[in-house]
Design a protein around this nucleic acid. Structure first.
Lengths: 293, 293
DNA sequence: ACTTATAGATGAGTTTAAATCATCTATACT
DNA sequence: AGTATAGATGATTTAAACTCATCTATAAGT
């Protein structure tokens, strides 16, 4: 007997009827099955009697108002139960992936960009919940979107979502420094990860015609800390424009008449195009918008 | 998250859509899936896009007119494929049981009753095919209906389908023997299985007021052979009324003015009520009718 | 490069299957 | 015995599934 014919035969029975049967077999009564499937007991009854006549087999013994599986029913129930369980658990996993985005990134980007606009994203996408984590922890887990900070040369072009520029910022309202005369303290960052390019301070000085001899550097291992310190002490920080955009807008930081300088640093999402959930796609579009205005 | 909610979620996706997806994933194009499921490609397309939006996930990459599974699609396809395969193979097994009856019984009943009326049964039940086997062979295989010949005392009352009577029969057209005068040769049976009650010849002689001193017995180990021998030689056979009914009707055998005698033998189907396929039920009703007129 | 054929997407309309409602039967529990 | 419960049955309604017509993009052939 050929394969195709078998398919046809099997398809004469409706999958919904099988689901009804599976549920009734598992729960023991049509009533409970109906509740489970949000149907009426009548629907279950119809499904099962339809199934029985298509298969030419009795699946339940009817003892008045009580039912019990026949031997054949038991065998079929075993199979449907296993089969649907496999399918259901895969569905559940896929749906979980579809209903949430899990993002992991640096503390700085998380604290200064993602977390502040998390609410906004969830407002705009009510069916998607957003989870943010930082640190190296659960990186390899599937469905998690990592936003990495690194050298443009190690990232695929198509994976880059933001090329980083740097500039000097100060607390809002402070008097602009006179760059050439007085001694200046400047907060900056020394990445924990030594393979990353340093913040392009030399290039920035050059582009702004400064020699930097009067500048004293104070280094933090995360940009976040330098920025916070600058705000707290009315100081100056040399940091990425990405992280400061929101603080500028909300008048917590200000910039001066200096020109920003491009760097070799960027934010990128490895294998960006491999994220096939729609929530991931929407998140990626959204974050790229946010970062690039 | 509670169990009930999960069910609900999973049920928001239709099983038919999942089947369409499973088929498309396996065959590689919507067109082939459509052929397999006897649908139009449009239906497959609708199903899959519906599935994708309910799950919030892309299951296929669309590269123009070519499709390929996404990672998520692949994972789901694995599950649906496994799940449906399990269900389908069980269905196939059950349907096979529903579409045929397999009967095993004694050579005599098979040859003289079952096989001659096999065609009639299949005419009356076009959706059921009937298979007949004899011998001890495949008895324990599931779905096979054994019709046993044995002592009424070892069979459950409800399992008995025919209580056996015995009488003497002769070839059609032969002159009735004069019971008391001339010497008579009578074919009869000595069961191979010694635990079975012998054919009730003594009781038959008594009920018919004969002493049997002029009767010479010739024994076969199956009733079938005695009957055939009687027909071939214009002889007489003492045998069960069940086996001869058809031969009487078709004027190949005749009976005389002797009275039949009841025996302790019967045909029975062990656990008759445990056969839950409708084909088995129909067969059992039919055979009980046949045997008891 | 231009045509032609093919696979799939999309939206509207149709058909069929599934679910419900109303009614009835048989059983279990007071 | 009387009542409540589980399921069966048949008619009707509702919703899902399927198709048709149309459109787009791509692959293949000339």
């Amino acid at each position: 007997m050929n394969q195709l014919l078998i398919w046809r035969l099997s398809l004469q029975v409706s999958l919904q009827a099988l689901k009804a049967f599976e549920s009734a077999a598992r729960r023991g009564t049509f009533k409970l099955a109906a509740e489970e499937l949000s149907l009426t007991p009548t629907a279950i009854s119809h499904h099962i009697s339809n199934l029985e006549s298509r298969l030419n087999v009795n699946l339940f013994h009817r003892l008045g108002r009580r039912i019990s599986l026949t031997g054949t029913g038991l065998r079929l129930a075993k199979a449907t139960s296993d089969g649907f369980r496999i399918i259901d658990s895969a569905l559940e996993e896929v749906m979980k992936a579809g209903s949430a985005v899990r993002v992991t990134t640096t503390s700085s980007l998380a604290a200064m960009v993602l977390i502040p606009s998390q609410h906004e994203f969830e407002q705009a996408n009510p069916d998607i919940s957003m989870e943010i984590s930082t640190g190296e922890s659960v990186d390899s887990q599937s469905y998690i979107i990592p936003i990495r900070f690194g050298d443009v040369s190690v990232a695929e072009d198509s994976d880059v979502i933001r090329s980083e520029s740097f500039n000097v910022f100060g607390a809002y309202g402070m008097t602009p420094p006179s760059w050439s005369n007085e001694p200046i303290t400047l907060f900056t960052t020394e990445w924990k990860n030594k393979s990353l390019p340093d913040p392009p301070l030399a290039a920035w000085l050059e582009i702004n015609g400064l020699d930097g001899s009067n500048i004293k550097l104070k280094k933090f291992d995360q940009e976040l800390f330098g920025i916070q310190q600058a705000m707290a002490e009315n100081g100056l920080v040399f940091c990425s424009t990405t992280l400061t955009k929101r603080l500028l807008k909300s008048s917590l930081l200000q910039q001066f008449d200096t020109r920003p300088v491009k760097s070799d640093l960027c934010y990128y999402v490895p294998n960006k195009d491999s994220f096939e959930t729609r929530s991931a796609a929407r998140f990626l579009n959204w974050i790229e918008d946010i970062l690039n205005q």
